[in-house]
Amino acid sequence: MSKKKPFVLRLDPELLGAVEKWAADEFRSTNGQLEWLINKALKEAGRLKNKSKNEE
């Protein structure tokens, strides 16, 4: 498993509330939801290669 680098993220309270609700609806942590969203956006923009099952 790859190492994860911690960092501080400042969000508008309304935006954070929406992300927290979405995360709860999908049974994810807020951090997990943000990571999923960023990963998805990067893949859709062609900025991140899709990993094959063997690479994970």
Rank of each mutant, 00 (worst) to 15 (best):
L37A: 11
K3E: 13
K40H: 11
S2H: 09
T30S: 14
R10T: 07
E14N: 11
G17F: 03
K4W: 06
F27M: 00
E44S: 13
A24Q: 15
T30A: 15
N39Y: 04
K3A: 12
S29W: 00
P6S: 14
K40Q: 14
N31T: 15
L16P: 14
P13M: 04
L42Y: 06
P6K: 15
N54P: 02
A41S: 15
A18M: 14
L16G: 15
A18Q: 15
A18S: 14
T30I: 13
I38M: 14
N54C: 02
V8M: 05
N50H: 08
V19G: 03
L15I: 08
E20P: 03
A18D: 14
N54D: 08
L15T: 06
D12Q: 12
K43H: 08
M1T: 04
L37D: 06
N54K: 08
K43L: 13
G32W: 00
A23F: 01
V8S: 07
V19Y: 02
R47D: 11
G32D: 04
L15K: 07
Q33H: 05
E56G: 14
E26L: 00
E14Y: 08
N39V: 05
E26V: 00
A23Q: 05
L9S: 03
N50P: 06
A41G: 15
Q33R: 03
Q33K: 12
L42I: 09
K3D: 12
L37P: 02
T30N: 14
K4Q: 09
S29P: 13
L34W: 00
K4F: 05
V8E: 05
R28F: 01
S29C: 07
A45R: 10
R10S: 06
N50V: 09
P6Y: 13
A23T: 02
G17R: 07
L37W: 03
L9R: 01
A41Y: 11
E44T: 12
G32I: 01
F7A: 03
K21T: 13
A45P: 01
L9K: 01
K43T: 11
K3F: 10
S29L: 02
